[in-house]
Computed example of a mutant assay.
Amino acid sequence: MNAPDRYERFVVPEGTKKVAYERDTKIVNAASFTIEREDHTIGNILRMQLHRDPNVLFAGYKLPHPLQYKIIIRIHTASQSSPTQAYTQSIDDLDRELDHLKKSLEEEKRRYEEKFRQGY
């Protein structure tokens, strides 16, 4: 079988950057970010987070090819912001949201275990 090894889907090769930035030369305040070893999961959640930013005019992503394990995120912002600022802010916001979700789940688990110990 000529399929690539499974580890190639998530291990970033040595010397390769996880995220690469490329400014758009034709549109002001537009850029593309290539994220290595990611798929629709990260692409869609990041796109949706970018859409929450009122300074983002366009945010979309694509997988160039099914055997290339990377996504390309395209961001176009208003003049008050830059694509890099929007990208960084969306990553920070997602990090906070996921941290809050983790803490909420841990608290709920703790409550459930406490009830279970009491004989509920």
Rank of each mutant, 00 (worst) to 15 (best):
R96Y: 08
I27V: 15
Q80H: 09
G119V: 02
L105T: 07
Q49D: 00
H100Y: 13
D24E: 02
K115C: 01
Y61E: 04
R96L: 05
L46V: 00
I72A: 03
P54E: 15
I91N: 07
V19N: 00
I27H: 02
K18A: 11
N44L: 10
R47V: 06
E114I: 00
I73V: 15
Y69L: 12
E106C: 09
P54F: 01
S90Q: 08
T34M: 02
R111Y: 12
I35W: 07
V56Q: 01
T84G: 11
R96H: 09
F33Y: 10
A3D: 15
D92R: 14
E14K: 08
T41V: 10
I73R: 02
D95I: 12
D99W: 13
V19F: 00
K103F: 09
Y112F: 10
P83I: 02
S81I: 06
R96K: 14
Y69A: 12
A3L: 15
K109N: 09
D99E: 14
S79Y: 14
T88E: 14
K109Q: 01
D24F: 03
I73M: 06
H65L: 05
D95E: 15
A20D: 13
A30H: 07
Y7F: 11
S79K: 13
S79F: 12
H51A: 12
N55T: 11
D5A: 15
L63H: 12
E38K: 01
Y120K: 00
P64D: 07
Q68A: 08
N2W: 07
D53I: 07
K17D: 10
E114V: 02
D99L: 14
Y112I: 03
E36T: 04
S79V: 11
T88A: 15
S79C: 04
L50M: 05
F10A: 06
R111T: 06
Y7P: 03
L46S: 04
L94W: 04
H51F: 14
E113K: 15
H51G: 06
I73F: 08
Y21E: 05
R110L: 09
N44Q: 13
A78R: 12
Y112G: 00
T16P: 12
L63A: 04
L105E: 07
E14S: 14
V56G: 10
T34P: 01
T25C: 08
P4M: 00
T25H: 13
K26P: 08
E108F: 12
K109A: 04
G119D: 04
H40D: 10
F33W: 07
L101H: 02
E114Y: 08
I72Q: 06
L105A: 01
K115N: 05
N44W: 02
P66H: 09
L67W: 04
I71M: 12
V11K: 14
